[in-house]
Design a protein around this nucleic acid. Sequence first.
DNA 1: TTGTAAGCGTTATCAT
DNA 2: ATGATAACGCTTACAA
Lengths: 344, 344
Amino acid sequence: MKFEAVTIKDIAKALGISTSTVSRALRDSHEISQETKQLVLECAERLNYRPNPIALSLKEKRSRSIGVVVCEISNTFFSQIINGIESISYDRGYNVIISQSLESYEREVMNLQYLSSRSVDGLLISVSTETNDMSHLKALHEKGLPIVFLDRITDEINTHSVIIDNFKGAYEATEHLVLSGYKNIAAIANSEFLSITNERLAGYREALLAHGITPDDTYIKHCFYGGMDFNEVEEAVNKLFTHKNRPDAIFTTSDKLTTGCLKTLHRRGVRVPDDIGLVGFSNSDIAELLNPALTVVRQPAREMGQQATELLLQLIESKRPVKQFEKRVLSPELHIRASTLPKW
Amino acid sequence: MKFEAVTIKDIAKALGISTSTVSRALRDSHEISQETKQLVLECAERLNYRPNPIALSLKEKRSRSIGVVVCEISNTFFSQIINGIESISYDRGYNVIISQSLESYEREVMNLQYLSSRSVDGLLISVSTETNDMSHLKALHEKGLPIVFLDRITDEINTHSVIIDNFKGAYEATEHLVLSGYKNIAAIANSEFLSITNERLAGYREALLAHGITPDDTYIKHCFYGGMDFNEVEEAVNKLFTHKNRPDAIFTTSDKLTTGCLKTLHRRGVRVPDDIGLVGFSNSDIAELLNPALTVVRQPAREMGQQATELLLQLIESKRPVKQFEKRVLSPELHIRASTLPKW
DNA sequence: TTGTAAGCGTTATCAT
DNA sequence: ATGATAACGCTTACAA
C-alpha cells in the first residue's frame, strides 16, 4: 500500500520457490501439493501479503471499479442512491468512482471521458438535465461499456434501467390533492427533456382527468435546472401566483422543487395547507420531518441504487453478451399528511 | 477502455518507431525531434489514444485515488463534505473511493483494510462513533499513508486535520437560547468519545456559565450512535421530559440529532418554540427551510471537504516528509430564527 | 535523436 | 508438482 508492500516475489524468495508456484498456491490450484500450499499460505499470512489489485487489473484488463454520474452528490435523493450503490459494490469488491454533472451537458461529457480514461468496468448514470444528445453515451456503449440507467433514462440506448413508477407517484400525489378538495392544481416540474418529467406530468394530467378536471397547461411551470438555482423555483411560483386563475394547490415533481417551493411559499407568507395545497416528490429530511404536515411522494432511492448496481455487475460479469434487458420499475410511496398540522 | 484500446504500441507500429520514442514524444521530452513529436501527437490523436492509468499506476506505484471513510454517505453533512472532496479531487485527476463505517468500529477497520488493499494514495477520514482505539489508523499512518482527519479527529496521530470551531458554534447556539429567555437548557449530544462532542459541550457549558447559569450534567443526554437509530433520540428526549426539572430548551449537537429531536417533539405535540426552545447543528434541508422557524448552526461542510482534500493532495504530492501539520478550523454560522413563525 | 531492455506485480503457457 | 518465461501498458536507464 505504501513503503514496499509485500509481493508474491517476497514469498517466493522466503520459501525458495518460484513465483508461479506461489501464485498457484494462493489461488488454491489443484496442481499444487498440500504441503506447499500450506507453506505458502502460512508465509503469506506471516508477511501480511496483500495482492496488488493494480497489477491484477493490468493483467485482467478490468479495473473492478464502476463509474457513477449523477447531477449532484449532495442532493438527498442522489446521496441515497449512492448509498445503495456503494453498499452493493462494496460487498462485491468493486470501487465506485462518483462524479457530478451539476446538470451540465458539458460536464457530463467530461465526466464520462474521465471515467472511461479511468477504465471503469461499467457505468451507472442519471443523465443531466441538459443532455438530449446521447451520442457520447452511445459511443461508449457501442465500444462495449456496460451501462445501466438510473431514474433518468433514455430509450435511445438498449440496456438495463432502474426507475420508479413516476406515473403512479404523480397520479397518487395529484389525486390526493383532488381528494383533499383542491380544484386548481398547478405543477412545478423539471425540464421537459427528462424522461421522468413527462411521466410525472402524464400521471398528474391523468389523475386530474380521472376526477373530471381538465388539465390546463398554463398551470405547468418548468424549472429547466430542476431548482439547482433557487431563483428558478421562485419565478415558477411567482408566475403561478400571478396566473389569472390562481391555483389553490401545487404538485412538485422533485426533491429540490418541493423544498424550493416550500421555501418560496414561506417567504411569501403563504401557509401550507391553509392557504395553498402542496404535494411533491421528496426524499429529504423535510419529508420525514414534515411528514405530518406535508404529503410527499417518497422514492426508494437506496433500493434503486442497489438494484442498478446489481444489474450492472451482472452485465459486467456475464460471459456472453446480454440480449434481453430489464427495466425495473420500483414503486414510490405516498406519505400522507396526518390531519393535524405541525406547530413549529 | 474496453474492446482493444489503443496503446502506445499501436502508435509505434503505425509510425514504424519504437515505443519509447512514442512515450517520450507524448510526454513532450526535450530529447525528441519536433517532427517526431508532431507525428506521434497527430497519430495519437487520430487513433484516439488514451494512456492506460492502470499501467501507469503499476509503474509509478501510485493509484491516484484517495480513500474516504465517513459514517454515512446519505447524511446531509457528509454528502456535502463528499461533494467538496469530489470537486477538488476531480480537478486534480484523483479518484475518490468512498466507504461508510455506519458508525461501526468493525466496519471502519474493514473499510480501511479494503481501501489500503486498493492502494489508495491517501486517506480522508471522519472516525466512527465506536472508534476509540486508533491503532488501525496508526498502523497505516506509520506505514507512510498520508491521512487527513475531517471533523472527527484524534490527537493520537500527528497529521493535518480540518474541523469547525465546535466550541464557538455551540457557544453561540446556547447563548442564543439564553438570550431568548430560556433558563433550563438541556443538550442532546453525540457519543462522549468523539472529539466534536466534547468541544461542543464545552461551548455549551461555557455559554451557560457566561450568563450566570450553572451547567447541570443531568441535562446532558448522549446518543451513542448519534441518532443513526431514531429511538436513541426519542429516548433522550423522553428522559429530558421526565427530568424532575423539565428543561425549557434543547441544544442538539448534530444534524441527525436536530432532525430526530424535532421529529420526536412533533410526535409528542410539543411545539417549537412555543412550548420549548431548540437550537441545533444542522446542514440539512430543514435548516434551510425552517430557517425562519428554527435557529441552527450550519457547518461549512463543502469547504471542509475541499480543504481537507487540498491538504491531503499536498501531503501526497510533497517530495519530502512534512513536519509541520495544520489544524484548519473553519467557522460555523449561526442562522438566527426570524421573529415570525412559519405557518405550515 | 532514437532504440533496446528491464521492470512494476501478477497470471498463463509451456516445459520439465 | 513445479519452474521459467512471456505478457498486460508504460517509463526509463542505458546503449547506440
